[in-house]
């Protein structure tokens, strides 16, 4: 399997580091809205009321799913940009 692009190794490692940083950032948000707001931090958010209940309940049954959606599309957009910046996009 050769990729036939003739890149220098430093380019590939820079691309991979930028990718891993993006992934970690997204996973922090992923964990914060689900395990955080919806479960572990829910008691702290109980003061904020939403439609007959509190913000934590909303995150548990609606909000976290909406944030997951935003995260995946953000990652797809961001990686397309990184692919081009580092010249590793598909032909």
């Amino acid at each position: 399997m050769s990729d036939g692009t003739g890149r220098r190794p430093s380019d590939a490692s820079g691309y991979w580091k930028a990718n891993v940083r993006t992934i970690l950032g997204c996973l922090v948000v992923w964990a914060l809205v689900s395990f955080g707001f919806a479960i572990l931090l829910r008691p702290l958010l109980s003061g904020i009321s939403v439609g007959g209940t509190d913000l934590g309940f909303w995150f548990a049954q609606q909000g976290s799913i909406l944030v997951f959606l935003v995260l995946i599309f953000f990652y797809a957009w961001r990686m397309n940009k990184l692919d081009r910046d580092y010249g590793v996009e598909e032909e």
């Binding site: 689900s34 976290s64 990652y75």
Partner: peptide, 23 residues
């Protein structure tokens, strides 16, 4: 409320798929 685990669990996995596996 307790059943929220299913809602988050069965959707949150797609974030992991998109970021860590599928591409």
């Amino acid at each position: 409320y307790a059943a929220s685990a299913y809602l988050m669990g069965w959707t949150g996995g797609y974030v992991l798929l998109a970021l860590l596996l599928a591409p």
